[in-house]
Amino acid sequence: MAERERLLAGSASGTFQSRTRVMSADDVSRAVKRMAHEILERNHGAAGVMIIGMQTGGVELASRLAAAVTAIEGSQIPIGTLDATMHRDDFGLRPVMPEAATAIPDDPTGKTIVLVDDVLFTGRTVRAALDAIHSYGRPQSIQLAVMVDRGHRELPIRPDYVGKNLPTRRNEMVDVNDDGVDLGEMLP
């Protein structure tokens, strides 16, 4: 799970305690394949599409989506990573530190960007990412792909491709890991 998610949950520190497994590793694989098909269907192929994974939780999912798209379409798709920390709106409210490198493979101007993250929660990270992408160029469009949409949006943002819609309580945690997706909470 991204450290960002952990901090957003507001719990001071602690360990993640899983209560239910909501997706198995196989469920996640199937969802990745379906989302790859949806991306290709909606954009009429992979031409002009660039996949950008959000640091750090979305990077793994982005590379899986890109691999799935390549497997279906047979052509390579540009893939990058983005750290939107510098564009966040909660400076001064909590410690904020850039987590990892940004690597945008090409000028995004005129491209269709598929922004990828593991969990969509308040939408604030996505808002920051939209700002960040625009400092690299002006994409033709930006689409959003997430493995889990857990609700509780604080901004008018919605995903275009969703692995699973998962109703949660605000204080719960969603953990996307190698074994699938778990729902639980942070224990002090």
């Binding site: 450290e3 520190s13 400076f91 909590r94 410690p95 904020v96 530190m97």
Partner: peptide, 14 residues
């Protein structure tokens, strides 16, 4: 000035 390290008692970010 920006990292918030001075205002929050939370050192995990570093």
């Amino acid at each position: 000035l920006g990292s918030g390290l001075d205002v929050v008692d939370d050192q995990r970010a570093i």
